[in-house]
Design a protein around this nucleic acid. Structure first.
Lengths: 325, 325
DNA sequence: TTGTATGCGTTATCAC
DNA sequence: GTGATAACGCATACAA
């Protein structure tokens, strides 16, 4: 392993000169530059980022804490993060909380021990996961962003899709296709979030009417509980607030001989591969997950570099037409 | 930031004592132990892994180099790796070559600069991606494994599924369900791999007969080119060597009013969520991707710890019955 | 324009 | 059992 010292000796200059030259801190004479460059090439110098980090008290590593890696929803976000960090020469640590047997506190401990430059938390829709952890980390003055989870600003940068707009877009589209009795189907969701969707629904149908809300309990049989509820209320269009559930619901409809979209239209929230693969292919609202990742990374980088950044970033969803509405 | 030095001062012992005590190198007196523990608690000591790495010339970071993060096939492997590394207190760096604008050499350079403890390359089926990079890294004496890609042993540990067995399992299952004219449908694949699948096919049908091989070119319309070929040869069962292609093929069949499995059975290679979601749900051969990840991580750890490890690990696939065969 | 010296927080080698 | 002290590879304040 050749070090700065070796280069310095070989080039007949001091370590400081080489160090400064390499970090563009110092204009050296053409001649010294040549000698340094020659030494670097001859000896095959590889800078030691670890030593640099120790000295500078700062690494080039950013951590992403994510509920699940093997899930297209999250991995789209992660991929956006990876792309952006890579572009700026930052490395990406991934911690999958689901699989890791460590609890959150242990993970956070790891962050400090490793002098992580910043942490991106990717939250669940369904609860305020990580919120306490984020508070802790903020207390340590480590740059943080909280992505994917809607909540009022609480001192750390937030990024999430505009859920009201998403709901409005979806509902309006269903309505525009002649569906007048639209249900919102969702997995367990806190009231605060559900209210957002209901608000968007109202804006979408341009009337002051409440949608039928159907909750999917864990492990239910769609044909036993969801479908009958929809039929009973003579629903002609469903907006499913979870992509996978939309797929399963569409399957259950097919089994029950309900034609999509003629008997009932199905629109899903989220646009990963699975909406495309489903039969029929699902019309959906795209939440811009990749962009969410990209922006999260940008905000973390701004913080690390002590540049200004947005406290709250709201992503604008858009509609993707396929054949289920 | 409190350091060993602070602890030492506060506990009235030397840095060396604290260091050794904390790394279980030294049996200290009950009394000194108490004082050290008290100091650690009072001052809130957090060990500095970066300093440790510099001193020990070795980090606890393992890198995974993967073609694509947001792909269930790869992310299942990655998740297995993450789980296993986490269990052993190693951190996981992820580099997505597709998205990163860096080329492979730059990524490798990063590995050295960061004193990565080991690298797991996840290869493509379709070509010997990364092979040259791996050679380079081996030259640097960094522990390496090559996962997912079949090839003869070449000096570094290999892990891959038993493709012959996978093909045999699938073919035999198709045959057992009364399908006698079975085609192998695949995306571009090197001959060496294709031979493996053909070999498995032979073992599966227990006859010395060649299967019909249908190649899917990039961007083709399944109903225009693949389906007619299958119909023309009066195929009654297809084994699709790529999960996503299987889904698209099933879709195309439905459009062409070919009933699955009655007119034609479809079996896919790979068992991610998408086989389950497809209509009909696809019977498939599971390649054990998560287990592949787990074992890859174990082998990297063995290398890092200079323990013995398997040079070649072959994963045994198994059949998952659903309704497309 | 270049060099000297010090320290980042830890481990490891001695010595006591 | 415990303590000085010298590295690890680099950056930087201060000299020259």
């Amino acid at each position: 392993m050749t070090t700065l010292k070796d280069i310095a000796k070989h080039a007949n200059v001091s370590v400081a000169t080489v160090s400064k030259y390499l970090s563009f801190d110092l204009a050296v004479k053409k001649e010294t530059e040549a000698r340094i460059q020659a030494a670097i090439k001859e000896l095959g110098y590889v800078p030691n980022v670890v030593a640099k980090a120790l000295k500078r008290k700062e690494t080039f590593n950013v951590a992403v804490i994510v509920p699940k890696i093997n899930n297209l929803y999250y991995s789209e976000i992660t991929s956006g993060i990876s792309q952006t960090l890579g572009k700026h020469q930052y490395n990406l640590f991934i911690y999958e909380v689901d699989q890791l047997h460590l609890d959150e506190d242990e993970i956070l401990q790891l962050m400090r021990e490793n002098m992580i430059a910043g942490i991106i938390f990717i939250g669940l829709f369904s609860d305020e996961s990580f919120k306490e952890s984020i508070r802790t980390v903020v207390g340590w003055e480590i740059p943080v962003v909280y992505a994917n989870r809607y909540m009022p600003f609480d001192g750390f940068p937030l990024l999430y899709p505009d859920l009201v707009q998403a709901s409005k877009l979806g509902t309006a589209y269903l309505a525009s296709k002649g569906n007048s009795r639209i249900a919102l189907v969702h997995k367990r969701l806190p009231d605060r979030l559900l209210d957002l969707f209901v608000e968007g629904y109202r804006q979408g149908i341009e009337e002051d009417r409440e949608p039928l809300l159907v909750a999917i309990e864990e492990g239910v049989d769609y044909s036993q509980s969801i479908i009958p509820a929809l039929v009973e209320h003579r629903i002609d269009g469903v907006f499913v607030l979870n992509e996978l559930s939309a797929v399963y619901l569409a399957k259950a409809m097919a089994q029950a001989n309900i034609r999509i979209p003629d008997d009932m239209a199905v629109l899903s929230l989220g646009n990963s591969l699975i909406s495309q693969i489903s039969t029929p292919e699902l019309t959906c609202v795209d939440l811009q997950n990749r962009e969410l990742g990209v922006r999260s990374a940008e905000i973390i980088l701004s913080q690390i570099r002590k540049q200004p950044f947005e406290a709250v970033t709201v992503l604008e969803p858009f509609l993707v037409e396929r054949s289920s509405v």
